[in-house]
Design a protein around this nucleic acid. Structure first.
Length: 420
DNA sequence: TCTGGGGTCCTAGGACCC
DNA sequence: TCTGGGGTCCTAGGACCC
């Protein structure tokens, strides 16, 4: 039996943990740059606020309805996520950390008598010890566990645990779930399936295998199998090594000059380099891109990207910055209102498997030592305490985040004080 | 009229996920 | 004024090889 544990309205619940006055109030969390709604509490959902609702167009509605608005605070959410996952890990030794607010647990090698009871126990402990409400769905496959989870959230959130331990229960959930709500079926496939008369998961289970294979490739075929109870999507307990690392962000304000654009890019490049070092990885190739804001129809639209190959795989900030600047020179065009710049590291390889070059002029050992020192300093002193001159101090590209809550769990000065 | 066959590797684009 | 960011997997088609 596989369980999916999913935190309810995770970001909104995180905001409540250290701010109980939010209890019972509608909460929305905004995307980067405070652009649109990416998470909502139940109360906000009841008010009819949609996922992706645009913040500035709804400001008055939020105010009129007492909606509590937050910028996203990923430092806080990540930290609380770690606590939840650590707790779940005490129930099962075969666990996949699927996303910031979800985990799959494979109980097939455990000898629990009563999995429903285990579900209640997980839910109760996570809530009492961390303060985050969760729902638990269990089924013979990951896809069915997902479905069981969604089913109980929609039908009995209070109970919050559902186990598909009989054919009847599986049938009930299949009939309950629209095809578009099946894990692995997105808008495109949902449309196709509806056009062919498959409206619910129960309909889809009866679809001819060859047809599904032809229309939806092996991905669709796997989903079909999973619905029938045949495990086709394996649980991945080991976090697979990353293949790409991407840092890209829209700016708080448009940028129309090269120095500021360079500053923004330098910042993202240095984050990429940091992430590489954290994962003991190096990149052989960077992909850079610049683009305008497609919503501003009054502006000339411009998108360019370029791949820059590195002579030797590296995670050295100075080296990555050097090549990023060469790349930017080639795709930068003056007279454009830029909205976004991004840097992707491709062709990642483990740091201990680098193919060195005979003609390499760099003293890599020394540079590695320097990078390590830099990372340690920033770890001690806080993010970006030490940085490179090219990163600059740009204000325009800085994210707009007007309503960020404190980092209660990761920053000394943000720790909650209680008056007694 | 006629064009070998069977591979591999790479990339771009499309689908999906949170 | 203002519209998210970061990933994965699969397939088709082109380039190239013998």
């Amino acid at each position: 039996m596989i369980a999916l544990v999913d935190c309810n309205n995770f970001y909104a619940s995180c905001e409540r943990v250290f701010n109980p006055s939010l209890e019972g109030k509608p909460i929305v969390i905004l995307s980067n740059n405070d652009g649109c709604v990416i998470a909502r509490s139940d109360e906000a959902k009841e008010l009819g606020i949609k996922m992706g609702a645009i913040a500035f167009m709804n400001r008055e509605f939020f105010e009129a309805n007492g909606v509590q608005v937050f910028s996203s605070n990923y430092t806080l959410y990540g930290s609380l996520s770690n606590r939840v996952m650590r707790k779940l890990g005490t129930f099962c030794n075969n666990i996949e950390y699927y996303s910031i607010d979800e985990a799959f647990l494979d109980f097939s090698s455990h000898i629990y008598q009563d999995l429903l009871q285990v579900g209640f126990e997980m839910k109760a402990q996570v809530f009492s010890e961390i303060g985050i409400p969760v729902s638990v769905g269990m089924g013979p496959t990951k896809t069915l566990a997902k479905m069981a989870n969604r089913f109980i959230k929609k039908t009995n959130k209070q109970k919050g645990v559902h186990v598909l331990d009989s054919a009847d229960k599986i049938e009930e959930v299949l009939a309950f779930t629209a095809v578009a709500d099946v894990w692995g079926i997105g808008p495109q496939y949902a449309k196709l399936l509806q056009q062919h008369g498959f409206l619910t998961a129960a309909d889809l289970v009866k679809a001819p295998e060859e047809w599904v294979r032809k229309q939806m490739s092996v991905v669709g075929q796997r989903t079909l199998n999973e619905l029938k109870g045949i495990c086709s999507i394996a649980l991945e307990a080991e976090t697979p090594t990353k293949k790409n690392i991407c840092v890209a962000r829209g700016f708080g304000q448009l940028i129309n000059n090269k120095p500021e654009l360079q500053g923004a890019l330098a910042n993202y490049v240095s984050i990429v380099a940091e992430k590489l070092r954290k994962g003991n990885l190096c990149t052989k190739q960077m992909h850079l891109f610049v683009q305008t804001n497609e919503h501003r129809t009054q502006d000339e639209q411009y998108y360019r990207s370029i791949d820059v190959a590195l002579p030797v795989a590296s995670s050295d900030t100075t080296e990555l910055l050097h090549y990023a600047n060469l790349g930017l020179d080639r795709i930068y065009r003056p007279g454009i209102n830029y909205h976004k710049v991004g840097c992707m590291a491709l062709n990642l390889i483990p740091a201990n498997q680098i193919q060195f070059s005979m003609f390499d002029a760099q003293n890599r050992l020394r540079k590695n030592t320097m990078m390590k020192a830099l990372d340690n300093l920033n770890l001690d002193l806080g993010k970006n305490a030490v940085k490179f001159a090219t990163q600059g101090n740009g204000k325009n590209w800085h994210l707009r985040q007007e309503k960020c809550s404190p980092c209660y769990t990761t920053r000394w000065q943000d720790i909650l004080t209680i008056q007694i």
